[in-house]
Simulated assay, not measured.
Amino acid sequence: MNSHSRHPINIAIDGPAGAGKSTVARLVANALQYIYVDTGAMYRAVTAVALERGIPPDDEEAVGRLAENLDVVLLPGDEGQRVLADGTDVTSRIRTIEVNRNVSRVATYEAVRTKMAEAQRRMAKAKGVVMDGRDIGTHVLPDAELKVFLTATPRERALRRFKEMGDQANITLKQLERDIAERDRMDQEREIAPLLRAPDAKFIDSTGRTIEQIVDEIVEWGRAASRTISAGEK
């Protein structure tokens, strides 16, 4: 699977909304020739489908039933990871403002998290996975060989999201910053698998740093962890 290492490992990258987890995780996976798993996209898919089917995001029972019967699949694509829900490509529909505002609520529901976590663990079973989210190192893959907690200031994260939206943005930077702060609060206070830094996770504040610097640092940590495992098995 991996030309850089005889012993592929699992890498968990956690952090709040807008910290750059998805971009960093994808580039780390490319560098190590690992598989990238965007867990946030899975929760967004559930949220998007619920909204499209007229299921109120605050109806935990109905959203839970939807998640239990929804087949969410992540596939590699030429322009990034594709997200399918029951065979339908929903990649372009999971980054809307409405999904942004409701995904944290949907992600608090036990039935939703249980179903998604089961799928995520299956993806990581063979090793050689870089998985990003909010509870990967603490809940989904607590035995990951490398854990990273990636963050940035709320202002920096809001600015990044605002730039990503470009001409499609129908929200002010100030409102986006408020939305991100509220999402942080919901992620940290939820009862099921809250956003926490694992005790053994390496900490990175990406404020003012380039993507390349962060990726290089994590890649080196990953290779070092793999070398340690290799040495231990000799």
Rank of each mutant, 00 (worst) to 15 (best):
A169Y: 00
H4A: 14
V24I: 14
D200K: 07
S104Q: 11
V73D: 11
N10F: 02
M165L: 15
Q120C: 09
P56M: 04
S206M: 06
V103R: 10
D38P: 11
T88I: 12
T114E: 09
A231Y: 03
A201P: 00
E110N: 14
P76N: 13
F162P: 01
A50K: 04
I211H: 03
G15C: 09
V83T: 14
P8C: 07
F149Y: 09
G80S: 11
D38C: 14
G18R: 08
S230D: 11
A126D: 07
G166Y: 04
V140H: 05
D200I: 06
N69Q: 13
V140T: 01
V63F: 02
L27I: 08
S104M: 07
R183I: 02
T172I: 02
D86C: 12
R155H: 08
D205C: 12
D179I: 12
A19D: 04
V112R: 09
N102E: 05
L141E: 01
D143S: 13
L74H: 08
E212S: 15
R209C: 02
R160V: 03
T39F: 08
G77C: 13
E52M: 15
M123D: 01
K202T: 08
I171V: 13
T151E: 04
A31W: 01
D58V: 02
R53G: 06
A50T: 03
W221F: 07
G77V: 08
I35F: 00
D200H: 04
V129Y: 01
I97A: 15
A169H: 10
W221R: 08
A48E: 01
E98P: 03
T153L: 11
G18V: 04
E233R: 13
R134N: 10
Q175A: 12
I204N: 03
A144I: 03
N30Y: 01
A169G: 08
R190K: 15
H7E: 06
E79L: 13
V24D: 04
H139R: 10
A17C: 12
A201Q: 06
L146N: 08
I211Q: 09
P56E: 02
V215H: 05
K174D: 12
A41V: 10
P194S: 12
T108W: 00
V99D: 06
D14P: 08
R82Y: 00
S92N: 11
A169E: 05
D132N: 11
I9S: 08
Q168L: 14
I214T: 12
D132A: 14
E164K: 14
N170G: 14
M131L: 12
P56W: 00
E191F: 03
T91C: 15
E110A: 15
G128R: 04
T153F: 02
S5W: 00
A225Y: 00
S230P: 00
E191P: 01
G18E: 05
A198K: 07
R65K: 10
V103W: 06
G20E: 07
V129W: 02
R53M: 02
I97V: 10
T138S: 12
I97G: 05
L141R: 05
R160G: 06
E60V: 09
A225I: 06
N10T: 04
V83L: 08
Y109A: 09
Y36E: 04
R101T: 01
D58R: 10
T23G: 12
E164R: 11
M116L: 15
P194N: 03
N170S: 14
Y34W: 02
D200T: 11
N170Q: 14
D187W: 03
V106R: 09
P57V: 05
E110P: 04
